[in-house]
Amino acid sequence: MINFEYAQPRTEAEAVEFLQSHGGQTAVLAGGTDLFNLLRSDLIAPKRVVDIKRIDSLKGIQQVSDGLLIGAATTLDEILASPLLSPYHSLRQIADAHHSMQIQAMGTVGGDLCHLPNCWYFRNGYGLLGTVNGESLAADGRNQFHAIFGNRGPAMFVSASRFAPALIAWGAKVRLVGPAPDQVELMPLEYFYVNPKTDKQSVTVLQPGQFVTHVWLPAVEPTSPVEQLSAAYEVLQLEGLDWPLASAAVTLGVSAGIVREAQVVLGHVAPTPWVSLDAATVLMGREVTVELAESAAEAAVAHATPLSENDYKVSIARAAVKRAILKAVDMLNV
């Protein structure tokens, strides 16, 4: 770890100011559960670390006219405890599935969304794209945990965020501020992620000096004739803290037993969260049965392009989609 300045802003504007200096060679510190790993292994070397945990507006969950705003510094524990989030089953399921008191107490929503990949080539110092002499190490190397979609290259890693698939399925947006002091942007979370084509790009659209302040979630109307159901299914090898081998999140709008709206998003299968319109299309206008969930799951993985060692992930992704759908309608029994 190289020495760095430490800044502790109290407002979003101060944070932007702190993040802009040093030509943007700065890093956001939220829970720090990953940032310190990155710093200690010299994968990033910011001149300044900006701790956003003292900014009150970034903490907690609040109701706004058209939905909810989750502050980027909200912890997983707060997600679990918030009554406002009780209609959003998939989000709670993910916070719960972390199975680690420490991470639940420290880890934040913003940190999860902006988490850099866990790809072992990246983490061992071969760059975000994991290359030697411009050649991808994962392409025909040890790629058992790598992408089965969106992996034509150069990126082969999988997006690390556990919340993003569920949030995207809910139609969430992210609120970004910076790099100019009063620049604010609200964009669909789906467009926040980037499948980098060069090593100059990163995994999100964030520019130096810009950061995530909130996640906006659309309101769930309890009285609406279309019932909003959701679930996430993460396939975890270990019961303790572990990264999913693949995951799926779905939200379904159901009325009179028929699916009227459907979103299916896979996680940990591609360099970005992976939206499956094919799976959603299978569900539309139908009643959810085991067979329908299986067809949707099949559609979700039909175009997978597994690498040399990760064909098994196709099966896992298929299971995740099927189970997330069944879980959303309370029909899962494994």
């Binding site: 072992w120 080539y121 983490r123 061992n124 030697v132 190490l137 270990l238 019961e239 303790g240 990264w243």
Partner: peptide, 25 residues
């Protein structure tokens, strides 16, 4: 232990990827 044939390195030499059970396992 997972060795990377290309780089020759012990590619999972960390406790995230050198997977050990927890109490639930």
């Amino acid at each position: 232990r997972i060795m990377d044939n290309k780089t020759g390195r012990y590619i999972n030499s960390d406790l995230q990827n050198y997977k050990l059970p927890r109490i639930g396992d």
